[in-house]
Amino acid sequence: MKDKFQKQVDAFSKVLLSFIILILVVFGGLYYWANHKPKPKIEDIPLEESNEDFDKVENGIHVATGFVDDKGMEATIQNCTSCHSAKLVTQNRMSREGWKATISWMQETQNLWDLGANEELILTYLTKNYAPTDKGRRQNLENIDWYELK
């Protein structure tokens, strides 16, 4: 009886081992297939063609970034948009002290490099073109025909 039981255990062990090997082979193959697809060649990747010139300015606004065209704009674009969107700058309004504090914070906590001689140029540009306004971020809505919901 022990021999019969031992044979059943051996048979079950072989079936279980075969099943485990099968699972490993299947999942290993799937993993290999998912992670080793042929990489596209450079010529196979479609390039987006842009008719927009990066240096284009319309109505005093740099088209590609939305920055006001003024002295210091290029230095501001080079130093600010390397890490974040231009929109992060243009949506804010701060005093010179506020812009200086923001730059210092980015240097202390966000690995912003030393701006050197460009710092004065950038601060002057930001203070002139993105200073606080009495109106806040958005002007009040005017000439609106309000109606009552029923």
Rank of each mutant, 00 (worst) to 15 (best):
G116A: 05
V63F: 06
K56R: 11
C80Y: 00
I144L: 07
E49Q: 13
K87E: 15
S18R: 11
R93I: 09
T109Y: 06
N92Q: 15
F12W: 12
G98F: 00
T81P: 04
V63G: 04
Q91V: 14
K87H: 11
K56C: 00
L88N: 14
T90F: 04
D55Y: 15
Y147T: 11
V89L: 03
L123E: 00
M73Q: 07
V68W: 04
E58L: 08
I21M: 12
L112W: 10
V68E: 06
L47M: 14
K14D: 14
I144W: 05
L121C: 04
S104N: 15
I122C: 03
L88A: 10
T109Q: 07
I20H: 01
E48T: 15
K71Y: 06
E120V: 11
A131I: 06
L22W: 01
F12L: 15
E52Y: 13
K41A: 10
S13F: 09
S85H: 09
M1K: 12
E43A: 06
L126W: 02
K56S: 04
T109W: 02
L126V: 05
T127F: 03
P46C: 03
F5D: 11
L24T: 15
K37E: 06
I23Q: 12
L47C: 04
I20R: 05
N140Y: 08
T76L: 01
K150G: 11
E142A: 08
G28Y: 03
